[in-house]
Simulated assay, not measured.
Amino acid sequence: MSKLNQIRSDATLVADQYGAMDATESIVIEMAEDTLCLVAALDAVLELHNSDGQRWVGFPRADRQERYCTHCNKAAPCPTIAAVISELEDPRG
C-alpha cells in the first residue's frame, strides 16, 4: 500500500524535523504524531485481516484454490481490506 507508506513517511518527517517551536508549529507536530498513531492502528487492522489463508473451492468438486482472510474467513480481499484499499486509493490516479 504505497499511499499508506507515503502518509507514514510524511508524518514521520514532520514529527522528526521540528523541535520546540511556536504554537502553530506545535499543532502541526501534534497532527503528524496523531497521523502516526492512525497509521499504526491501520497497520494492526491490515495485519489482522491478512490474506495468508489458501483453500480449495468449487462446486460440486473443489477444483481451484483461493486466498482468504484468516481473520474473517472470507475470500481475499475481505470487506475490511477492500474498504481500506478503497479509501487509500489516490484519486489523482
Rank of each mutant, 00 (worst) to 15 (best):
H71Q: 09
T80S: 01
A62F: 09
E30N: 09
D52F: 06
L4A: 07
V39S: 07
L38A: 09
C37N: 09
A83E: 08
R61S: 10
V28Y: 12
I85K: 10
S86E: 07
A15I: 04
D90W: 04
Y68K: 05
W56V: 03
E30V: 02
E87A: 13
G93D: 12
Q17D: 06
T70P: 00
C37F: 01
P91E: 09
A62E: 14
V84D: 00
A44E: 15
G19E: 10
E66C: 03
D16M: 05
A83M: 06
I27T: 11
A62D: 08
M31P: 00
E30S: 12
E25A: 12
V14W: 05
V28H: 12
I27V: 14
A83K: 10
A75E: 05
S9P: 00
N50S: 15
I85Q: 13
E47Y: 05
G19K: 08
A75Y: 00
C78D: 04
F59D: 13
D43Y: 04
C72K: 10
E33Y: 04
I81H: 00
A20T: 08
L42C: 14
H71V: 00
D22Y: 03
Y18D: 00
K74L: 11
A76N: 05
A20V: 09
R8S: 07
R92G: 02
H49T: 04
I27S: 10
I7R: 07
A40M: 04
D43Q: 15
L4I: 15
V45C: 07
D10M: 09
A41K: 15
I29V: 15
T80V: 14
H49Y: 08
M21I: 05
M1K: 04
C78L: 11
P79L: 05
K74I: 02
E47C: 09
R92S: 14
A20M: 01
I7W: 01
D52Q: 13
V39M: 08
C78V: 09
V57T: 14
A83T: 06
A20K: 03
